[in-house]
Design a protein around this nucleic acid. Sequence first.
DNA 1: GTGAAAGCGCTAACAA
DNA 2: TTGTTAGCGCTTTCAC
Lengths: 319, 319
Amino acid sequence: MTATIRDVARACGVHVSTVSRTFSAPHLVNAATRSKVLAAADALGYRPNRAAQALTTGRTFNLGLIVADIANPFFPPLIKAAQAQARQRDYHVFVADTDEDPRAEEELVRTLAKQVDGILLCSPRLSNRAIERLAEDTPFVVVNRRIKGMPAVLMDVGQGAAQALDHLIGLGHRKVALVSGPSGSWTSDEMRRAAAETPGLDLVLLGPNQPTEEGGLAVAGDVAASGVTGVLAYNDLVALGLIEGLAGLGVTVPGEVSVIGFDDILPGRLNRPKLTTVTMPAAAAGRLAVDLLLQGEGALVTLETALIVRESTAAPRQA
Amino acid sequence: MTATIRDVARACGVHVSTVSRTFSAPHLVNAATRSKVLAAADALGYRPNRAAQALTTGRTFNLGLIVADIANPFFPPLIKAAQAQARQRDYHVFVADTDEDPRAEEELVRTLAKQVDGILLCSPRLSNRAIERLAEDTPFVVVNRRIKGMPAVLMDVGQGAAQALDHLIGLGHRKVALVSGPSGSWTSDEMRRAAAETPGLDLVLLGPNQPTEEGGLAVAGDVAASGVTGVLAYNDLVALGLIEGLAGLGVTVPGEVSVIGFDDILPGRLNRPKLTTVTMPAAAAGRLAVDLLLQGEGALVTLETALIVRESTAAPRQA
DNA sequence: GTGAAAGCGCTAACAA
DNA sequence: TTGTTAGCGCTTTCAC
C-alpha cells in the first residue's frame, strides 16, 4: 500500500540503491538523478521505513524517555522540551512511566533498549549498580543522578537546599524538618546531605515519603508532633499536601510552621499561602539530556537552582 | 552483541524457525522443545528485535500519542493512563507535542505513521477533512473530536457547559461571557453550541484565545469591558489567568464576576478562590482510546463530565 | 513437530 | 555515478 524504495526506483527508472543513496548520502548522486528521484518520491508520497532502516543500520532514530510519574507536574516540562529537541534532530521519543517502581523501571529499559538509540533516565529509582549494568547494552543519559562515568544532567539540589535552609535560619528557625522523598531518589539524598552539612540546625529527618500530595498529607501529623518550626519538603506536591494536612490539624503556615518546597510547579504559585520554593530547570535539563545523548559525549552538566521566597515562610513565632 | 534468534537456535540445536515459533505460536511446538528453547533464550538474554518483527509482520507494537501541549496539566493524566494501558498490551508509545500547531500535527502524523500500529490524536487542531485524509493510511482514534465514521472518545463537553451555564443562571447571572479556546478545537465549538442553546442568556463571545494562563490574562481587559457578571472559560488555565488579570484590573472574583473553568486540574483546586469547574475524565479517555485503537472497533465513546462548584462563582452583586 | 527457503524494506560494500 | 549483491533479524509458507 505505502510506497517503498522499489516503487520509487521503478517510477524513475533507476536502481533501488540510487534511491537509497538519494536519501542517505545525497552528495554521492548526480544532481539531475537526485531531483528526478526526489520528484518521484514526492509524487508517490514515499517515506523511508524506519524499521527497515533500523535493521540495516542499527540506528532507530528513536529515544526512550523514562520518568517516575508523568502526572507529577515536575516532569511534563522536561518531557516537552526533550521531545521538541529530539524532534529537531529527527528523532521520535518513547515516553514511559514507572509509577515510582524500580522493577518497572528496569523492565522498561530492557524492553525499550533494542528499539532506541539511547535512553534518558529521569530521576531514576533504580540503584547505581543496576543502572550501570543496564548501561552496558544501551547508551544512557541520567537526569538527577550521579553515576561515575555516565553522562548526566544534574540540578544543583544541594545548593538549592542549602539556600532554602539558610533562608530558614536567617528567619530565626533552629529546629527544622527535612521531609524526604522516595528511597532511591538522588535528589532526596542530596537534600539530606546538604542539610547535614548546614551548621546551626536542629534537624529532624522525616521519611521516606511518597513524592505526592498524599505523601505530604500523610506526614503532617509527624511534622506537627516533631515540634519543628520550619520544613524543607522533597517537592512542591509534598509541601502542598503538608500545608493542607497541617491546616487540618489547626497548624497555620507560615504562622506556626514555615514550609519550603522544591520544583516551582504552577500549583505552588497559586496556592495560598504562595509557596516558597526552589526552582528546578526541568525544561533545560530535558533539552540538554537529549543533546548529550545524541552527541554521545561523556559530559556531566550541572544546572543551577534558585530559591524563590514567597509566602509560606516567615519568622518563627516567639516561644 | 545482543543475542539473536540464531544464537538461541544454535545454543539448543534447533532451527531458527522453531525458535521463532516458540515465541509467536508456542502451541505449534513440542512442549519439551519449547522449554529447551525458552531456557536457552533466557540464558542468553534474548529479546526479539521489534524492528525485524515489524518488517515481516507489519505490526510494530508501537502507538503514537499526539497532544497539543504536553505541559498543559490537562494532558499528563491522559498520557499516563494511555501509556499504562498500552504497556499492559505490550505496546510502547511515542508521545509527541504539536505546540498547538496544526501543521506540526500533520507532519507528526506523517512521520509517525509507518512506525506505529495506530495513532491517538488528542484534542486535534487539524480540520476534520485533514484528519480523514490522514486516516486513510493509519488507524486512528481521536479524543475530543467527532468525525463521522472514526473511532472516538469524547468528553461530554456540551453537557458540562450546559450545567455550568445553568449554575450561573441559577445564581442570577444574565449577561455571561464565553471565553473560547483555540480555533480548530472541538471542545471549544461544543461549548459555544451549548451556550447558544441555553435560553435566558445574554451571551458575549470572546475568542479565540490561547488555551493557557497567558490567554486568560490577555482577555481579562475584554471581559471587564464587556460588562458581564459571569464567565465560562475554555479551560482552567484560562480561567486562572483570567482571574489573575481581573484582579490586576481591580475586579474581584467572585464578588464582581463569577468564573467557571474546565478540566479540574490541580492548580484550580489550590487557587484562591478555588475554581468552580467541570471535571473531565482524562485518564479514562486515555485508557479507552488505547483499547479502541487496539481492538480496532469503530466505537464512539462518550464520557460524562460534571460541574464542581467551588468558590469562584457567586450571585451577582445587585446593580 | 520441525526444517528449508523466501522475503519484509532498506543499506552498504563492491564492481562496473 | 550507478548497478549488483548480500544480508540485517525475523516470520511464514511449504515440505518433510
